[in-house]
Design a protein around this nucleic acid. Structure first.
Lengths: 169, 169
DNA sequence: ACAATTTACGTAACCAGATACATATATTGA
DNA sequence: TCAATATATGTATCTGGTTACGTAAATTGT
């Protein structure tokens, strides 16, 4: 068990630990796919699920649904298109819009993919100790974030700390 | 309050939510630094802390301490060097090693930086609801990860699911 | 009806991780 | 002692995210 300096940093280490853990999941999921001969990327799962439910969506709608920037969605979708998993059809009324949906190939492969996703899902629950406390804590922070950003909270604290304190330097 | 599809995905959405939250912290911390005229990046904080405690360390030692790859540390350190925050001295006995330490400029700026880090730290506690439950849940998952990777867990589950089930397709 | 604004998609440039590969120096071992 | 192996740093290329900027189409409003 190697030393982990981020643990010493207490809450100040949380940002990096969140990313570090997320990265571990991503890299190992990619490994898992490759070892099992699946030609998909880890972050495509949410797009599959989304388009399974909604049938067709525009780039902007997807970006809003998953709370990511639209360029992030465009890059993701372009790779899925290149592999033939996504169909794109221009809206006849609003020429700016393109409706994205799962291709025939994607739908055909779904049953196979589902089996691997089920294994990943079980492994995840296993790793979380078969409870959802991490999710719950995450949700709490996400909710507070919506009330007021980290940014503004820090700025506010900086100001209140500054006034009663020394006006020096 | 906009819809968030990742919440619908339950535990399958956790990977992306961890990264999404971490990114929010990073981007808003960068904003905070820029608004206050500080010429540093968010992920430099842990390096400052580490070198404050250990005085001097090699790239490899830093990489091990924070559980990142060594190329990640090299990139990070090179940027800090470019801004004059890091000194590098070659070991006289082992010419492969370079001891990294905080520069005079870095040490001189520390008191100023501490005030901003204190504000960020408070803001973080605020956002976490003044408890450390998120950290505790995170720690649990990190520990289980050390016992067995996500990868192997998924592979194992895949195999046990396969045997008693249909050998079809 | 047409100018001004907003919306949708796309691109460029940046940050931050990882793995794979390369090179130089140390260490090991027959 | 010298060949083989291991270690330390560095580079290239991939992933994934962001903001800033650009262009075309739709909507708003006078």
């Amino acid at each position: 068990m190697k030393e982990d300096f981020l643990l010493n940093m207490g809450s100040d280490g949380v940002t990096d630990r969140l990313k570090r853990l997320s990265d571990l999941f991503v890299y190992q999921t990619r490994d898992f796919y490759r070892n099992n001969g699946l030609d998909i990327e880890p972050n495509w799962h949410m797009i599959f699920r989304l388009l399974q439910e909604r049938e067709k969506m525009t780039v902007t709608e997807i970006a809003e649904a998953i709370h990511h920037s639209h360029p992030a969605v465009i890059k993701l979708i372009n790779k899925m298109k290149a592999k033939g998993y996504i169909d794109s059809v221009q809206d006849t009324e609003d020429l700016r819009k393109y409706y994205l949906s799962l291709s025939a190939k994607a739908i055909q492969e779904l049953p196979k993919l589902e089996r691997y996703w089920a294994a990943l899902s079980e492994a995840l629950m296993d790793l979380m100790g078969n409870h959802l406390r991490l999710l719950e804590e995450l949700r709490e922070v996400e909710e507070r974030f919506e009330e007021m950003g980290f940014n503004q909270r820090a700025e506010k604290i900086l100001n209140t700390n500054r006034l009663p304190d020394s006006p020096s330097e």
